[in-house]
Design a protein around this nucleic acid. Sequence first.
DNA 1: GACATGACGATTT
DNA 2: GAAATCGCCATGT
Length: 109
Amino acid sequence: MEASFFDNVFEVAKLIPKGRVTSYGAIAAYIGMKRSARMVGYAMNASHSDKSIPAHRVVNRNGLLTGKHHFNGPDEMEKRLKAEGIKVKNDKIINFDKHFWDPATELKL
DNA sequence: GACATGACGATTT
DNA sequence: GAAATCGCCATGT
């Protein structure tokens, strides 16, 4: 099977180091489709098939936990991030810039 | 098989 | 500068 867009998203998501977060657009851009940020989020929905995917480390460009509702509970995502040392307030990651993990920069292909 | 929608982001008006 | 629109792939109805 050819690696689809979703598959790439899953693999990159799995590569996110603990205590780091990234954005949908960053993953999409790393794959080569920065315009497909929406699909990245949708892919995360499909990630339910793979529990190894730390979808909680993927947030929107503003560091906002837009997809927290898709977890076991609306507080699950926030709780997990806090457990990794990431502070979340008002559904937003504090110091998002410091926790931001860009695959294009960190992995650098 | 066609239409609508979905965890977003950038570009254009 | 803010609001509106386009772009993208896959899934569900």
